[in-house]
Write a protein that binds this DNA or RNA. Structure first.
Lengths: 235, 235
DNA sequence: CGCTCGATTGATAGCGTTCAAATTGTGTGG
DNA sequence: CCACACAATTTGAACGCTATCAATCGAGCG
């Protein structure tokens, strides 16, 4: 269960410059957003923020932590449809008068800003910067979803896993370490694979010296080797 | 190669009420859209409208026909990421200052309205209805992409194919016939399967009397049977 | 220390691909 | 309208990848 710990203030928000409000002047933050009924949610790992099918009354911005958006089949098989990082906006299905189309669950301890969609919609209508900022995010979501469909539909297991790792470590130098926040099951649910398949290839690549892992952190030692497995143009 | 056959007029557009302009009054159509540099493209089957990676200068509305949006791996494996029907808007990556993220190809003889993104963007900024109409479409695109990721990542071959068929025939009564515009290869590229796998299950279900096919048209005879294969809550 | 849960590893099975050949369907020109 | 060529689909057989089932290992924790 998430804990509501306060109202939150855009002016002092730690991730304001990553949020949809990053383009707004302080004047507007002081006037237009003053009356927002925002709340800050403190969540531990595995908290459910909302469930697929619930009426969508709030949008959310992730301030800290990691969140997975999932969909499930009646038989329990689960697909992670998106992984959210700091600054990401989610839960906006209500803008189209729809219930949430997926379930949102924290992957780690997280801090979330909750915005009533009604408030955000008013702001959207009167403020073109907000409008454009949200639009840019949705278009990015669509592009990333398209990329993901290629991963899921056209790639084989090792290709999926290798491109996932390269993306996860994007921007890092070889030998840098980064926390692999996801469990084997979550990686599998994201890539459409089983725990065992994920584990097998990770083990193999550790044996081959492509990759190191320790205490939940990973480091890509030989990114060229992984890239050959990945079957893609990810640089 | 698409053929440019004219400028097109919103007031007389055959699919205006399915387009993003459906909410606009005739006044606005007469004033704001008057200066749009629209073009009508007449395409035969398999025409390429744009290619992934090209700068995105135009958005398009499909007036008639069918279009597939595809992405490919370096080795040639292809994924269809979206199938467009009459009234659908596509090619808007340029709104986010991005190149096209996929390739758009006609599946059948089609008629397309081409709009310069610059024009559309101006209209978006000054007209909240257009803005909202486009937003609603993008949000729908995101939801459908999420649904598709579940199909691709969590379902087995017969489940994918059965839900595809049910969706294709949505709204029809049993015994109604509908054109199955896609080839076996295209169905496969959409569902992440091979031609042969698609063909095998279709044959099996025809043998079992779930389905009939003739001259490119299909009819679901036993939708309950298919639904059991589909492993989903599609009604 | 022993419990629990996640990860690893092995063995096996089966699903879907691949390769190949046969068949059907479609469009073209005579 | 038919004959032909070519493309799409179907069908068969065999392989290989990934899932499944099962056992073991290891880390974290009370």
């Amino acid at each position: 269960m998430p804990n509501i710990t306060g109202k939150g203030h855009c002016l002092t928000c730690p991730i304001r410059y990553r949020s949809i409000f990053s383009g707004l002047s302080e004047e507007i933050l002081k006037t237009d957003i003053k009356d927002f009924h925002t709340s800050i949610l403190e969540c531990k790992s595995n908290d459910v923020i909302y469930q697929q099918g619930e009426p969508s009354k709030y949008a959310y911005t992730l301030r800290e932590g990691l969140i997975k958006l999932t969909k499930s089949l009646p038989n329990g098989r689960t697909q992670i449809v998106r992984i959210l990082k700091k600054g990401d906006l989610f839960g906006f299905d209500g803008f189209a008068d729809k219930a949430y189309n997926h379930t949102a669950i924290t992957v780690s301890k997280s801090e979330i800003c909750r915005l009533p969609l009604k408030d955000l919609d008013q702001l959207r209508i009167k403020n073109i910067e907000i409008n454009s900022a949200m639009m840019a995010r949705w278009l990015k979501n669509i592009r990333e979803a398209e990329d993901m469909m290629l991963e899921l539909g056209a790639k084989k297991a090792p290709e999926k896993l290798a491109s996932f790792l390269l993306k996860w470590c994007e921007g890092l130098d070889e030998k840098d370490w980064i926390k692999l926040e996801l469990s084997r099951r979550e990686i599998g649910d994201f890539l459409g694979l089983t725990i065992e398949t994920v584990s097998r290839f990770l083990s193999e690549w550790k044996r081959l010296g492509f990759l190191e892992e320790s205490k939940g952190f990973i480091s890509i030692v030989n990114s060229e080797g992984l890239r050959k497995k990945a079957c893609s143009t990810v640089s």
